[in-house]
């Protein structure tokens, strides 16, 4: 009787041990990938920030042109670029960003550009119209893809297919904290810019319209790349934390089971001795 239960406990301990090994390995892989991703962020963040602040300054300085990029009345046709991961086992990383997007697009006529397998699967099952399915792997998207994506997006925006373009990504705050965020990319301004008052003192070469037409796709591409870098680092950080706690849990369970195992073994020995003593 006692023998059966010690055997059972032993099998469970063994299975816990192999689980711990896997989670430990995943944690270490995530930690090393996180280091790379953090180094990448350190490089791309200044670009991302400078680009964003420069464009904001240009918009705020009050231009006399009426580019569709600057302001457009919203009729509810929005496009969301959603960046999530390709794999699970990363804590709340995927579900948090998807939940945030779902809550924002509820009452809108939304189209989604999914980046990453999890996003693609999610919006496919929810039957949300997709802009393209060309990016099923978030890890494979490079800076060139970001710029070609940006070109397509700005063309679709100019054609009037969408009134707003947002990007949803997970901002990397620290190794322990990542926040899902959405950012409006287009239009650039909240309100119609006053026309023709000449308040702007910026010289555009060759003309304001042409500058905006060339700069906006570049801006979109740059911001997308930055968001992608942030998301990737967040994914690795989330996975590392999740796997760390999984390893911790496995260790706790192993300790608990070992104690039970020893108790059962001790009980069996005691019983045997009692039987021998009683028999002699």
């Amino acid at each position: 009787m006692a023998g059966v239960s010690t055997k059972e406990i032993k099998t469970r301990i063994r299975s816990m041990e192999s689980t711990r090994q896997i989670t430990k390995a995943m944690e270490m892989v995530a930690a090393s990938k996180l280091r790379q991703a953090q180094a990448k962020i350190a490089c791309s963040r200044p670009y991302f920030e400078t680009l964003y602040s420069t464009i904001t300054k240009i918009v705020e300085s009050g231009t006399e042109l009426s580019s569709p990029y600057l302001y457009r009345e919203s009729t509810g046709k929005v496009l969301y670029i959603v960046i999530a991961g390709d794999r699970g086992l990363a804590g709340g990383y995927n579900s948090n960003i998807l939940k945030l997007v779902m809550s924002q697009i509820q009452d809108k006529e939304a189209t989604v550009l999914p980046i990453g397998k999890k996003t693609l699967d999610h919006f496919r099952t929810k039957q949300v119209p997709l802009f393209t399915e060309a990016y099923p792997e978030a890890a494979a998207v490079d800076i060139g893809d970001c710029f070609s994506m940006a070109k397509l997006l700005s063309r679709a925006y100019r054609a009037g297919k969408y009134d707003e373009i947002h990007v949803a990504y997970t901002g990397f705050v620290s190794v322990l904290s990542q926040t899902p965020t959405t950012l409006r990319l287009l239009p650039l301004s909240d309100s119609p810019v006053p026309k023709g008052n000449g308040s702007s003192d910026i010289v555009y070469e060759p003309s304001a319209e042409e500058v905006f037409d060339t700069i906006v796709p570049e801006y979109l591409g740059g911001v997308l790349y930055g968001a992608l870098c942030e998301s990737r680092a967040s994914e690795q950080a989330a996975r590392r934390t999740a796997m760390d706690s999984a390893t911790q849990n496995a260790e706790d369970m192993i300790a608990d089971l070992s104690l039970k195992f020893n108790q059962a073994r001790q009980a069996a020995i005691t019983q045997e001795i009692t039987e021998i003593v009683a028999g002699s």
Partner: peptide, 18 residues
């Protein structure tokens, strides 16, 4: 730039070019 070289020195007027 897309329309040719531009030179920038101190005190340049505010400008933006691709």
């Amino acid at each position: 730039t897309t329309t040719g070289d531009i030179g920038i020195l101190a005190g340049h007027v505010n400008c933006v070019a691709p």
